[in-house]
Computed example of a mutant assay.
Amino acid sequence: MKFIPLYDTIVVIKIENDNKIGEIYVPTNENNIIKGKIIETGVGTLLKNGEIFPLIVKINDIILFKDSYNVEKYKVDNIEYYFIKEKDIISIIK
């Protein structure tokens, strides 16, 4: 399935792992922090003057984001897609 997100919307799939990044353990209980891979991005944030400010993140970036009320989810063929905004991203993992 191909998504074409609008403006600053980002499509992410969850990466299942042992909740460890390098030597740091990421809590998965009450913080609801998710590690994911960006599969699609919009063109950028629409500013009040009509210009578009490009996104910092790119396709295939690995990110951390918090599963909150801002996050929309869509499940197809046992794959859960998360639709988030760039401002909801906690960190890019390199």
Results as ranks from 00 to 15, higher is better:
2 K>R: 15
2 K>Q: 13
3 F>N: 10
3 F>V: 06
4 I>C: 12
5 P>T: 08
6 L>P: 00
6 L>K: 15
8 D>N: 15
11 V>M: 11
11 V>Y: 05
12 V>I: 10
12 V>P: 06
13 I>D: 01
13 I>S: 03
16 E>N: 09
16 E>G: 01
16 E>K: 08
17 N>P: 02
17 N>K: 04
17 N>F: 11
18 D>Y: 08
20 K>C: 08
20 K>H: 04
21 I>S: 03
21 I>Q: 06
22 G>S: 09
22 G>N: 14
22 G>R: 08
22 G>Y: 13
23 E>S: 12
23 E>L: 13
24 I>A: 08
24 I>G: 00
24 I>D: 09
25 Y>S: 13
25 Y>R: 07
25 Y>V: 14
25 Y>K: 13
26 V>T: 08
26 V>I: 15
29 N>E: 13
29 N>Q: 08
29 N>Y: 10
35 K>V: 12
35 K>C: 12
36 G>S: 04
36 G>E: 02
36 G>T: 05
38 I>F: 09
38 I>G: 03
38 I>H: 03
40 E>F: 07
41 T>G: 10
41 T>Y: 07
43 V>Y: 05
43 V>Q: 15
43 V>W: 01
43 V>T: 14
44 G>K: 11
45 T>A: 02
45 T>L: 07
47 L>A: 13
47 L>K: 15
47 L>R: 14
48 K>G: 00
50 G>M: 06
51 E>H: 08
52 I>P: 14
58 K>V: 00
59 I>N: 13
59 I>Y: 04
60 N>S: 05
60 N>G: 00
60 N>I: 00
61 D>H: 11
62 I>P: 02
63 I>P: 07
64 L>H: 06
64 L>Q: 07
66 K>L: 03
67 D>H: 14
67 D>P: 00
67 D>Y: 15
67 D>K: 13
68 S>F: 05
68 S>D: 15
69 Y>F: 12
71 V>F: 06
71 V>A: 12
73 K>A: 01
74 Y>N: 15
74 Y>Q: 11
74 Y>M: 13
75 K>L: 11
77 D>K: 14
78 N>V: 01
79 I>K: 05
79 I>G: 06
80 E>C: 13
81 Y>Q: 10
82 Y>D: 02
82 Y>A: 00
83 F>C: 05
83 F>V: 04
84 I>S: 04
84 I>K: 02
85 K>Q: 12
88 D>C: 10
88 D>G: 02
89 I>C: 04
90 I>T: 02
90 I>C: 01
91 S>L: 10
92 I>N: 01
92 I>A: 01
92 I>F: 04
92 I>P: 01
92 I>S: 00
93 I>G: 04
94 K>A: 01
